[in-house]
Design a protein around this nucleic acid. Sequence first.
DNA 1: ACTTTATATGCCTTGACAAGTATATGCTTT
DNA 2: AAAGCATATACTTGTCAAGGCATATAAAGT
Lengths: 125, 125
Amino acid sequence: MESVFEIIAEPNRRAILSLLVSSQQSVGEIERQLHMSQPAVSKHLRVLRDAGFVESTVDAQRRLYRLKPEPLKEMDAWLAQFRRFWSAHVDALERHLDRMGRDMDQKTPAKPKTKEKTTRPKPRA
Amino acid sequence: MESVFEIIAEPNRRAILSLLVSSQQSVGEIERQLHMSQPAVSKHLRVLRDAGFVESTVDAQRRLYRLKPEPLKEMDAWLAQFRRFWSAHVDALERHLDRMGRDMDQKTPAKPKTKEKTTRPKPRA
DNA sequence: ACTTTATATGCCTTGACAAGTATATGCTTT
DNA sequence: AAAGCATATACTTGTCAAGGCATATAAAGT
């Protein structure tokens, strides 16, 4: 499980990170708020720590976990390459798709040899 | 494989998306540039399309795939909750950790009952 | 010293998914 | 119509990770 992206693919791990945004938390606190078993929480925290998403601090028998920014910034950096694209093309693209959608409703009389036809994805739950 | 994050957890899928940033590509073109088998490419494209990351267009026997912005924006939205955090705290946090690191080198004479001790993560390859 | 509280870890089972191979589908050219 | 090219899909197999349960470790309280 090398990459930053595989780490945050796990929903519980994302939940933990979201929790830690507000403030640092102990394992037990996380366990209760997210309704997961203590070993599960510990294991996820282990993964997150090894990947640099969090760091821990010993307070008596507890360990307090808090966020570290680096890996999140790394994700942001990857996303950056697309940002240019989506901010530029969203509305133009949507208009284009709208027109294609309407064209498909008609019986498409004669296909002019090499004209393109758009396939729509099925909606996700 | 519901969430956007699980989709982009796959390295080849990320590679495909990065390829498509420049321009739309046919399956065969992707296959060659990424050195993967044709079925592999088709399968990943299927996943990406069902998740709304790409859309396809028929051009004779080829299918041209291009990016769609929505899911990427969704990721960006999730990341947003941390942005506040990392831009505010990076330098302060790093100074803090630097001092902790230096403190640990000394023999830590007497633990004052409830003083916290930082654990560092192991570096990733 | 013993018990309780807090967290980590080891083992095991189960499920998901990626890749390979083979084959199906469909358009094109001759 | 036949052959060929481009892409999709079905089936099988190997890998890996998540969760449960039990247990280890360690600090606190009595």
